[in-house]
Amino acid sequence: MSTATSIQTSDKPLGRDALAELVARDIAPGSFVNLGIGQPTLVSNYLKPEQNITLHTENGMLGMGPEATGDQIDGDLINAGKIPVTELPGASYFHHADSFAIMRGGHLDICVLGAFQVSATGDLANWHTGAPDAIPAVGGAMDLATGAKDVFVMMTLLTREGASKIVDACTYPLTGVGCVTRVYTDKAVFLTGPDGVTVRETFGCTLEELQELVPVPLKTAE
């Protein structure tokens, strides 16, 4: 059995919910946040009222509340995934150009997105497989990737075939260049930027074991 390095903070890989809880805990109090469709949406389940986080949805709203249930459901009040949601006190509505100005203008502190691949320098690929018969659909992914002050990615580290999704250079079509600042995976949290990849913590593996899975040089903070 190998020796655990000091940055291993869990003795097993994190599941989707535990990862969502970790992302939620890492969001600074008072932040304005956009959560992407899919796994990132789980983060909202773990935001605490005392964090005072304001959620933005691209279709024109700040102050989005939890998913609507029962007679709360209102066809005029949906999120970017077209799921009925609720509004919180202090909510505001605005048109699409203003909503994307909020993103592009750098007013959002954090967006959390899923990904197919992230490169060592934070390039993101999450919108298109590039397959010849695939119908491309981009939605707001490029705007979010480009506009938010911090772009967090949530994904499994490996594909179903066992390939690392953290790569030297993305092979899928890019969503944004050098935009990802942090990657949350089941096996580790990575910080990405112009200087490459730094591992913040690992789950259920040592740094050395992690390095064997990831084809780019991994550093630690110290």
Partner: peptide
């Protein structure tokens, strides 16, 4: 991209001849 779609529509209504945006650069 959705924000470029919205801003291109807005630009038409506002009499803007076009604009530079970081969204989509390098893609």
């Amino acid at each position: 991209p959705q924000g470029n779609l919205a801003e291109r529509i807005r630009a038409a209504g506002a009499g803007i001849g076009g604009f530079f945006t970081p969204t989509g650069y390098g893609t």
